[in-house]
Nucleic acid binder design. Structure first.
Length: 782
DNA sequence: GTTCCGTGCAA
DNA sequence: TATTGCACGGAAC
């Protein structure tokens, strides 16, 4: 009986399923015939023949660059610049769109090239005869005699040390712009490199000619290979000036600056970049139509001259900035060129030995680690996380499954074998980032290792360094660099330059006191903050502070504490880094600020200034701008007032916002604004101190360069923020070294004395105090 | 090949 | 939930 019903039910079920299949088939058929709309393809998506939903292109995961490309393609198709190139929009996928982007760029490029050639301005000239060269020389003469600006730029085979100049463009104030090729691959006649170099050398090295370039260091290095030294005549570098006018600039490429500000100097052009025109391979430029090359090259110097004149007018309105450029940055450029040209002497023998030794140790550790943690790639944080947190089930102390050194050190307390990974990381980093690659990066022509120093590499005024970064070499990697036979390396560093700057600028007599008296800064600060005797705060006294109940040695606390106040650290972070409780950290900072009221007041004033002006000023008038801070500050203070009203009392900095009895939504909004406000407030105070200290160094470097000109064989090798490195003949006298030190000390007059420490070394990083070297002689290095 | 992320070095 | 930087290796596209 049940069977019958069972069968019946089964039949019914079959029937139902059959009908569903028909329905599905119909849907599929419909979907197959379905032609998605333009909107669906890009934005909303549409149903597919398999019954799934096809996502719109913008609904899929897209990286920033691709998003831009896709938008460009969409717009180009909508404007009928290109077609979709598919029969059905169903075939229009993201990858198809990205392919279309390449085509689109190709079409635009061809279009622009054609246009450039057709519309060549009649004041752009190709120079390829002796008569024309004579004409150019005449104009250079006139410009020199009349003190007129001369725009200058080189075209090259690339940006490496092995690359060479293939042509030079020059722009004159009479609106004449020329390109002189000598290394192109072309049927068009060219003057020879030797001829052009000889002629240009005569004019470009003439003392006082006012050369205007964009990224002048590059051209200076390139021209030097043809025997032309322009570094003394770089009157203005428009890239550097732009950084003084706006340190927040997204891109300092000439074309980008021109596109952004061109309307202010009557330059209307959606100019393409070199890469957009010629692709990544410089060879394409060298082989390009000479008319196009002339157009492109001439336009660059033309543009540079126009940009400079606009920048000059902007600096006239802000005299501080004008002097920051002409008194500091302009004169720093040749110092950079010197350093980049000289470089370090490398100890290849030591490098080879050390490399092999490190390699052995790394291999050894790798074997041990794989035995313990399995066959994983130790360099992969992802794989390491999986082993530590999933396989070994270690406690996630960071809350983020971190595998960084800080976290691993904590984990190592429960699992000592993690120490192997820490050791591996340390040695592997040293080997693969420094010891192995650095010796290979020496310049082929000089066999010395040169880096690039960027005078506008930071928003505060400090230098940055790259290729390689000579400012962050670990101690052990510094040993790769030595003084050549007959020379010594000298390191002269400013002692506590940032605290001194703070003491000077804030006018806090308490802060100035230890410097004026020549006693220990941190012990003095600790003495005043904790109310202990000065003597008890020196680190040789390890007893008094214990009895007083302080959590750490007061001098050590003070070192971190002062740094904390200059960086604007949060109290919990200070507690963390000192290993004390938040309450203890809070009390510490309260006491510190109370002991140095003028310093505290000054910091508040800096923030207040930033709130009112959206920028702060350094000692020499450099600006650090915080766009939008006025508004952030307004919102922040409005929230503080609102919350204070709700609480019926003043909201304190030490209040924990999350524990207050106010609406949750308000807490979140306040938290976000406060975060941004505090971040900028920290940056503002730090920018004044760091920026002013960096100016002292820059001014010192300018004066040092003049001094070195009077010495045979003395070289400035590098700047590491508060330190200068020199290569100096062993024959140098104490008197001479003291003169050099004095130049740094006297570079800028502060309200406190400035002090330097001098170190002498044969190998970088293995130096001894100068006094010790004087006493013991070369023996001291044995 | 490009780009992002995590990590780690310096003052 | 600390300022300013740059380089490397892995991973995803």
């Amino acid at each position: 009986m049940f069977d019958i019903f069972g069968n019946f039910e089964q039949d019914l079920e079959k029937e139902k399923k059959a009908m569903e299949r028909v329905k599905e088939a119909e849907i599929k058929k419909k979907a197959k015939q379905y032609e998605p709309s333009w909107e669906e393809v890009w934005i909303t998506g549409y149903p597919t023949s398999t019954g799934n939903h096809k996502k719109g292109i913008f609904q899929t995961k897209i990286t920033g660059k691709d998003a831009e490309r896709l938008k460009a393609v969409k717009t180009a198709i909508e404007n009928e610049e290109i077609g979709t190139e598919v029969e059905s929009l169903k075939k229009f996928s993201k990858s198809h769109a990205l392919n279309l982007y390449k085509k689109l760029m190709e079409i635009r490029r061809a279009e622009i090239i054609k246009e450039y050639i057709e519309n060549m301005p009649d004041n752009y000239h190709l120079i390829n005869t002796h008569e024309q060269m004579e004409w150019v020389e005449n104009m250079l003469d006139v410009a020199y005699v009349n003190g007129q600006y001369v725009g200058l730029d080189t075209e090259t085979t690339g940006v490496e040390w092995v690359d060479r100049t293939v042509g030079v463009s020059i722009s004159f104030m009479n609106d004449t712009h020329v390109y002189i090729p000598y290394g192109h691959v072309t049927d068009v006649p060219q003057l020879t490199q030797g001829f052009v170099s000889k002629k240009l050398k005569k004019h470009l090295e003439r003392q006082g000619i006012k050369l205007i370039l964009h990224n002048s260091k590059f051209d200076a290095h390139m021209l030097l290979k043809d025997g032309i030294n322009i570094r003394e005549n770089i009157f203005a570098d428009t890239m550097v000036i732009q950084a003084i006018l706006n340190e927040n600039e997204e891109s300092f490429a000439l074309k980008n600056i021109a596109n952004k500000y061109g309307r202010f100097f009557n330059y209307h052009d959606e100019s393409l970049t070199f890469e957009e025109l010629f692709g990544k391979n410089p060879q394409n430029f060298i082989e390009a139509d000479m008319r196009l090359a002339t157009y492109y090259a001439s336009k660059d110097t033309h543009l540079t001259l126009l940009l400079f004149q606009w920048q000059l007018s902007m600096m006239e309105k802000q005299p501080n900035l004008k002097s920051v450029y002409f008194d500091i940055e302009q004169k720093i450029t040749p110092v950079c060129i010197d350093m980049e040209d000289i470089g370090f002497d490398v100890d290849f023998h030591f490098g080879e030995e050390y490399k092999n030794e490190l390699q052995r140790q790394v291999d050894d550790l790798e074997v041990k680690i794989k035995k313990v943690f399995g066959d994983i790639n130790i360099n992969s944080s992802q794989q390491l996380q999986a082993v530590l947190y999933d396989k070994m089930k270690l406690e996630d102390v960071s809350g983020k499954r971190s595998a960084d050194a800080k976290t691993l050190k904590k984990l190592a307390k429960k699992e000592p074998r993690i120490k192997l990974i820490l050791d591996y990381r340390e040695l592997k980093k040293l080997l693969s980032t420094y010891i192995e690659p650095l010796p290979q990066k020496v310049r082929p022509d000089t066999k010395r290792l040169t880096g690039v120093f960027n005078q506008i590499g930071t928003v505060t005024g400090r230098f940055s360094s790259k290729d390689p970064n000579l400012q962050n070499l670990p101690y052990k990697a510094r040993h790769l660099f030595k003084a050549p036979e007959g020379f010594l390396i000298y390191g002269i560093d400013y002692s506590q330059i940032e605290p001194r700057t703070l003491a000077s600028m804030s006018g806090d007599s308490g802060l100035r006191h230890p410097y004026l008296e020549g006693i220990d800064l941190y012990a003095t600060l600790a003495s005043n903050t904790f109310g202990l005797e000065y003597e008890a705060c020196l680190e040789k006294d390890d007893e008094t502070w214990r009895k007083s109940g302080l959590p750490k040695h007061p001098r050590k606390m003070m070192k971190v504490g002062l740094l904390a106040s200059m960086y604007g650290i949060s109290v919990p972070s200070l507690g963390e880094s000192l290993g004390i409780s938040v309450a203890e950290a809070q009390k510490f900072m309260d006491d510190f600020y109370k002991a140095y009221p003028r310093m505290t007041e000054w910091m508040d004033e800096v923030v207040k200034f930033a709130e009112e002006n959206s920028y702060v000023l350094t000692l020499h008038g450099r600006k650090r701008r915080f766009i939008g801070f006025k508004e952030t500050a307004r919102q922040y203070h409005a929230y503080v007032r609102r919350i204070s009203n709700l609480l019926g009392r003043k909201l304190e900095d030490s209040d924990n916002i999350w524990r207050l009895e106010i609406p949750r939504d308000l807490k979140r909004k306040f938290w976000d604004v406060k975060k941004e406000y505090s971040r900028v407030a920290r940056q503002a105070v730090n920018a004044v101190i760091q920026g002013s200290a960096s100016e002292i160094m820059k001014i010192a470097m300018i004066k040092v360069r003049e001094y070195l000109k009077t010495k045979e064989g003395w070289k400035l090798l590098a700047t590491i923020h508060d330190e200068l490195l020199f290569e100096i003949p062993v024959t140098a006298t104490e008197q001479e070294i003291r003169e050099l030190e004095a130049i740094m000390i006297d570079a800028v007059k502060l309200e406190v004395p400035i002090k330097c420490d001098v170190e002498t070394a044969q190998v970088w990083g293995k130096g001894v105090p100068f006094a010790e070297y004087l006493e013991k002689g070369m023996e001291v290095f044995a």
